[in-house]
């Protein structure tokens, strides 16, 4: 058990090391223009310098803040709404098309609309990201509620629980595994939209803007460093949500 866990960690590391080795070989053999692809060492140094001496940390924290704000708005709106919609299949049926339609519409296509509505400030980026995340969360919460095990609801009812108690004591708990799927997807969508918004709608900070600026001045190590930072952020959020899920939905899949 312990051995296999260590083994898996080593395995994951091997994949990353192979990628870095290929990268190094490509750079050493000059298979790609070195201006476009600096060595992994240069990129890593740029990442480290950016964090310690430069402004990478500032951009990093701005992106985290925007992602967190948009995610928080999405959760506050979508979770209660999803429970209400999921509780009645008839109501959900009436809005299902709308949810599916907007869920399938690329949120980036909404940028111009949100720019008109909210201007070029920070709130526009947060609002678009919240919009995209909310739809995914709403969809998953509603399905979680609709697919709650009927027998557990019956069990609560037969013990004397009224409709509201069944909802609070059983249905909401039953929907949690699916809700967490929605939360995990929602936060990654929020991050994607925030980064894109930082690239294209008038930003002075954030990882998206940093990647764009580095590219425009051909500071490739800087660009790779910022991309790497965005990757770390996305991966970290994913790990965080998996840990939260294990903690709060401990019975899932058992």
């Amino acid at each position: 058990m312990m051995f296999s866990r260590i083994g898996r960690g080593v395995q994951a590391l091997v994949g990353a090391l192979i990628l870095i080795a290929i990268w190094e070989v490509v750079v050493v053999l000059r298979l790609v223009d070195p201006v476009l692809l600096p060595g992994p060492g240069d990129a890593l140094r740029s990442f480290w310098d950016g964090l310690v001496h430069g402004t990478l940390w500032v951009d990093f924290s701005r992106t985290i803040w925007r992602t967190a704000a948009s995610f928080a708005i999405a959760v506050v709106v979508a979770v209660p709404l999803g429970i209400v919609l999921g509780a009645s299949e008839r109501v959900y049926g009436a809005v299902e098309f709308l949810i599916d339609f907007f869920r399938s519409t690329p949120a980036s296509a909404m940028f111009p609309l949100f720019l008109v509505l909210f201007g070029v400030g920070d709130f526009t980026k947060i609002a678009v990201a919240a919009f995209g995340a909310a739809l995914v969360i709403l969809f998953n919460v509603a399905y979680g509620v609709m697919n709650a095990r009927k027998q557990r609801q019956l069990a609560a009812r037969v013990m004397g629980a009224g409709p509201l108690r069944v909802m609070v004591d059983v249905t909401v708990w039953e929907s949690l595994p699916q809700t967490f799927v929605g939360l995990r997807n929602g936060v990654s969508i929020a991050l994607v939209i925030v980064i894109v918004a930082e690239m294209f709608i008038g930003s002075t900070d954030g990882l998206g803007q940093r990647i764009m600026n580095a590219q425009m001045v051909f500071d490739m190590p800087q660009m790779y460093a910022a991309i790497f930072a965005a990757g770390v952020l996305g991966y970290g959020l994913n790990l965080l949500f998996i840990a939260l899920e294990r903690r709060f939905v401990h019975w899932s899949g058992k």
Partner: peptide, 13 residues
Amino acid sequence: YVFQNYREAVFPW
């Protein structure tokens, strides 16, 4: 009331 399918009758949370 005791259900046949105890897995889906008890509350795992």
